[in-house]
């Protein structure tokens, strides 16, 4: 490593500016969520008023509950199917499954959203609601789980599985006693990742939601579009706390997620 003090300084300044660009907007939201003013303009004083208002907002609490149900169901389904897909793609030379699993991850969300909308209404004749959102979220989360599980499998020594087979283990025993414990961190990371993606997703939810139940991102969208109150700051801060906690837990389990191995 050569030391070039001058250029290193330039790099540092540019990098600090980029970090500031990434963080200042979020800090502003957190700060204004405690601000005793209806306008998001200047600091007036500390208050917990907006959090209390949130607790009394029935629609919002219902939306939070619905979004939790959706995220838990979708991440359970996506983790089960995604783990299978990751295992299958790693072990066999499959042509179709990788394309089907990874394309929804790579394409603009709006395309998946509208095609599912057409499918649900035209073919299934399904009333849009929680079920349609759960299915839609599962569809795009499968790919993420498969990517994480496969990345974990790729980093492992194949001879372990051969040894198990040589020692007379059945496929099920090999899976249950060797493969599963080894890929467990990836499965947990995938589940947390799907949960986060589901609870955050706006675009696909927007197209596959019904009119009945309120859903969290849709509620936030309506608040932003119609009447911005600092309540949005409060719910945003709480959501940040939730997703940050989940991401930190997820990366504890599997750091390969961090290295941009999704591509």
């Amino acid at each position: 490593m050569i030391k070039i003090p001058h250029r290193q300084t330039v790099l540092w300044i540019a990098s600090i500016l980029v970090y500031a660009f990434l963080y200042i907007p979020l800090i502003i939201i957190v700060v204004f969520s405690f601000n005793d003013s209806k306008l998001n303009a200047e600091w007036v004083g500390f208050t917990l008023h907006w959090y209390k208002a949130l607790l009394n907002n029935h629609e919002m609490l219902l939306a939070a509950r619905n979004s939790l149900i959706i995220a838990i169901s979708a991440s359970f389904l996506a983790t089960t199917l995604g783990t299978m897909a990751g295992l299958a793609i790693h072990r066999y030379k499959l042509k179709v499954l990788p394309i089907l699993a990874f394309t929804p991850v790579a394409m603009p969300e709006i395309l998946l959203g509208v095609s599912l909308l057409l499918f649900f209404l035209q073919v299934l004749n399904l009333t849009l609601g929680m079920l349609s959102i759960i299915i839609a979220h599962t569809t795009f989360c499968i790919g993420f789980v498969a990517i994480i599980v496969r990345a974990r499998l790729q980093g492992m020594d194949e001879s372990i599985f051969e040894a198990a087979r040589d020692l007379g283990a059945t496929p099920w025993q090999t899976f249950h006693q060797i493969t599963l414990p080894l890929i467990r961190p990836a499965i947990i990371a995938g589940a947390l990742m799907s949960f986060t993606l589901s609870i955050d997703d706006f675009v696909i939810t927007f197209f596959t939601k019904g009119v009945g139940e309120p859903i969290l991102p849709i509620q936030i969208y309506t608040m932003i579009k119609v009447a911005v109150t600092p309540e949005v700051n409060a719910i945003s801060t709480l959501l940040m706390l939730l997703t940050l906690t989940l991401i930190i837990i997820a990366t504890r389990f599997d750091t390969s997620m961090l290295r941009g191995e999704s591509k």
Binding site: I28, I29, R259
Partner: peptide, 30 residues
């Protein structure tokens, strides 16, 4: 790893929230 984590963290917060933050920053009263 820490520096990469610092890049990933803000992107873990809600998509709408991140757009909304810029509504505040760029708003006429900001």
């Amino acid at each position: 790893n820490l520096m990469i984590m610092l890049v990933v963290l803000p992107f873990a917060s809600n998509f709408l929230v991140r757009i909304y933050a810029w509504m505040i920053i760029l708003g006429p009263e900001s």
